[in-house]
Nucleic acid binder design. Structure first.
Lengths: 335, 335
DNA sequence: ATGAAAGCGCTAACAT
DNA sequence: ATGTTAGCGCTTTCAT
């Protein structure tokens, strides 16, 4: 492995000078500079970032903790983080928790030992043990779509409220008065929030006397499917259903269709996430958009700011969500 | 930052001993060991993997180069790599090339400077410049689904031939004699191979006098859609279409359906990749399965073997592909 | 305008 | 059974 000494000898300078020309960190005579460059070229020098990191205490590396890259929620977020990172000469360690807090703790601990400059936690399974681990080690970090807002850490949120309010208002304007909501898994904070927001919105229309119900799903297709089958069995059909995520909505849609129910003629359906799938199913799904690429990009930016200045006041960023009307919603027949 | 010296002082031993108890690399008296452990606990010691790496020349880190995590081909592969890596105490740097060779070269160069122990290249845009870069630096690497088989590097392939042959044979047994193939982007080697395999298979049935044609797609939904629209316009409709990937097939399906063509009654369609989507569209898509999770996992294993023993003879691993029959194929009406 | 030398935290050959 | 010491490749203070 060729190092500063080799270059220095060949260029007839000291290692110090080599360092300075490489980092442009103090004046060096143009001629000496050229000699150094020439030597580097001849030796095909490749800097050793490990050594540099050990000396400077900076690794130009961040960790990104997610639950499961196969979950269609993540790829765009990851892309956003990675692009912004590379643009700033950072590289990113990707860590899957597999929805397992234990694994999350281990990953974070590995990242810390690697002396990464910061961590983006977007695993949505962040609980107090992970939070404690992060704050205990005073590593830089930002939390994505984590729900306890009262905590004093850098964080980014989706404001589900707006999108859900738009969805409900859209349905109401179409004449719907019976609106059910299929929620996500019980232990998922973001799912809890979505339900909360739905209920709050519905209740704000108390003069309309809306009929609503919260049903259980699991944020996967099968969950939506089964819940809808159950509704069919019980003949308990509203005129519209809002789902906690798109997969649930797609599962429900399949179930209804298999039961001979026409969408949107007989029942309107709205999803949440706006994953690519929503434009592929038929009818195309009306859904609430989350800017996942944007939140990833911004999370990385936020982390960079934090790294640059640890004294920065705590940063918060909220992402509006908005309704995308497609084909799965229509006038209520009940009118 | 607490280091070996701090621990050593507190435990009344030398830093060497600290190192040896941490790495279990020579005998240390149980009592001294205990003193060291105690000191570590008291100081909340976190090893610095950077320093260790600099000293040992090993980073327990690998790089994974892909084109675009939003491409549904990748998430499962990435998952496979990551899981196997973590299981072996490695962490992985994820790098997107964004289908840009230039970017690929830069990423690889960054990885090398970080002294990663190896690289998995699965960007399918591997060209000679990248290959040269890899071999020039004698970094450990494996190539995933790269097509030039005559080259002497560790590599993993999908054997598209088998799956495509199954697809053709399936169609023939259903009475189809007019079979078109919608290919992928021109510059993509794996797309080229798929076309080649299709033609070879078709030609092997020369006694049947099959009618076939190769049309152009781009491996995205819109490409399949437009090609199919074109076919509709020209009234040039075969009884069956095989597509170079699932997205193309789904696009084509949409186009046909919008033109009043029933699938599979009027035309049979087969995709390739078996992405999750194929089970969601209706009719569910008959497709050729690629074990993407498996290839990712095995790629990491292969790389680990290479890292363990650089003298190992070159490794190759081929993954069978196989037809999954669903709802988008049926008897040809022409009979 | 350039160099010498100490140090980042760890490993490992060599002593004792 | 444990310690001394010289690196790993780089940065950076202090000299000159």
């Amino acid at each position: 492995m060729v190092n500063y000494n080799d270059i220095a000898k060949l260029a007839n300078v000291s290692p110090t000078t080599v360092s300075h020309v490489i980092n442009e960190t103090r004046f060096v005579m143009p001629e000496t500079k050229e000699r150094v460059y020439k030597a580097m070229r001849e030796l095909k020098y490749q800097p050793n970032l490990l050594a540099r990191s050990l000396a400077t205490g900076k690794t130009q590396t961040v960790g990104l903790v997610i639950s499961d890259i196969r979950n269609p929620f993540y790829p765009e977020l990851v892309q956003g983080v990675e692009e912004m990172a590379v643009k700033n000469d950072y590289n990113v360690f990707l860590c899957n928790t597999d929805y397992d807090i234990e694994k999350g703790v281990k990953s974070i601990s590995a990242l810390i030992k690697r002396k990464i400059d910061g961590i983006i936690v977007a695993s949505s399974q962040v609980d107090s043990s992970i939070l404690k681990q992060l704050t205990d080690t005073d590593v830089n970090f930002v939390l994505v779509d984590w729900c306890k807002r009262n905590i004093k850490v850098d964080s980014l949120y989706f404001d589900y409220k707006v999108g859900i309010a738009e969805a409900v208002s859209h349905l109401i304007s179409l004449g719907h008065r019976d609106i059910y909501f299929i929620g996500g898994p019980k232990n998922l904070k973001t799912a809890e929030i979505r339900i909360r927001n739905f209920i709050d919105t519905i209740e704000s229309y108390k003069d309309l006397n809306l009929n609503y119900k919260i049903l259980e799903g699991n944020h996967k297709i099968d969950g939506g499917y089964e819940t809808a089958i159950e509704m069919l069995k019980n003949k308990d059909l509203p005129t519209a259903v809002i789902c906690s995520n798109d997969l649930t909505a797609i599962g429900a849609m399949k179930a209804f269709q298999s039961g001979g129910i026409k969408i949107p003629d007989d029942i309107s359906i709205i999803g949440l996430d706006n994953i690519a799938l929503t434009e592929i199913v038929s009818p195309e799904l009306t859904t609430i958009e989350l800017e996942r690429y944007e939140i990833g990009k911004t999370a990385m930016e936020m982390l960079l700011n934090r790294i640059k200045d640890e004294k920065l006041p705590r940063q918060i960023c909220t992402f509006k969500t908005k309704l995308i009307v497609r084909e799965s919603t229509a006038e209520s027949k009940k009118n």
